[in-house]
Simulated scan of single mutants.
Amino acid sequence: MKRAIQLLLLTLIIISSTPQHTHANNEELSQEEIFKGRMELYQKMETVTQVPWYYLAAADTYERGLRRAQRDRPREEGLISIYYEPEVWAGPINPNKEDTDPLSISLFNGVGLDGNGDGIASLSDDEDVLYTFANYLEQYGFDEEDFRIALWDYYQREQSVSIIHGHATVYEHFGNLDLDDHAFPIPLNHNYSYKNTWGDRRGWGGRRIHEGTDIFAGYNVPVRATAYGKVEVKGWNMYGGWRIGIRDLDNIYHYYAHLSGFEKGIEEGSIVSPGDVIGYCGSSGYGKPGTQGKFPPHLHYGMYRDNGYTEWSFDPFPSLKSWERKAYQDRKKKK
């Protein structure tokens, strides 16, 4: 009896000393605290389930992007963005869609699990949500192919699998979460000019709109990555000529076109940081491979957002102006 009481007290101490990452604290935390709290959660679930932390971070980051792209999804209030419909969490035939009892949730074939030992499986508890997802991945195994299969079964979309796998590769490469910096694609010490050309009409190859911003600069001016990410595409496109496509951690695809060539070592699958040179400004495109000179040299820069169903272009001009302004401010501080 005495031993049982001691075990009970020990359990209560562990539960009370474990940080409870509920959805109420997100707006009260600094960015540094948010990254720290997320990493603690990822690493804790890695210890519990053996699922690598960067797999969990990648899926959570992907879902954070979906919350920003899908109007019918609420914004996350806590640290974790993985989303479950209440009827999926509690069970499709559960009369109580807000059920937090792990036993009754299980009886109604719900997915919700208790992730911190408090006897409650709550959609408003970050640990419960992350543990539920980690437990799902754990059932498939722990290597890269197991991860891909689990994601395919979960999302039923190859693009989603590819994006999350890319995020995992980036997180594993850098070993941290603080990867939100950006860079202007043209070095400030070169002459360049641009204006907002997104949505303008284009005629070559059929009537279409301009899905980007043209930044005019001389031949072979360096073109830089604007964000942390993974190179998804490299090669020739009859419209964009020599082009590179990079996916960042907001699920955004960055498209760099009309290049004169690529930086040595940049290949599909390469991991890049903001400011890394990836290629050089040119006038390639509008024809068969190698076509050059049909227009003045410039970088066509486009941004495309993925919402879990499809991908669409949006105006990159505001982002470019913001990154350019920040670059000038940083340069001024160094003087």
Rank of each mutant, 00 (worst) to 15 (best):
E158K: 12
H254D: 01
R202Q: 13
F174A: 03
G212M: 01
G166F: 04
T197H: 06
S283E: 04
R201E: 08
R201W: 06
R202N: 05
S270P: 02
A168I: 06
I163K: 01
G245S: 15
D248S: 12
T291D: 00
V233H: 12
Y239P: 00
W152E: 12
N191F: 02
G275Q: 04
R202E: 10
W152D: 11
N251C: 12
K195D: 01
G203V: 10
K234F: 04
R202T: 08
R157C: 02
G218N: 15
Y256C: 10
N176H: 14
L249M: 05
L259D: 02
Y286T: 00
P297R: 14
S283K: 10
Q292E: 11
I164L: 00
H165G: 07
K294G: 10
F216S: 15
K195E: 02
G290E: 06
E263D: 05
G290N: 09
A217I: 02
D200Q: 06
G212T: 05
G285C: 01
W242H: 14
H182S: 11
G290S: 10
I186W: 02
I244W: 12
V272H: 08
I246K: 07
F184H: 09
G261F: 07
E268R: 15
Y286D: 04
I252M: 08
I215R: 01
G175H: 06
T213N: 04
Y255D: 14
G241S: 06
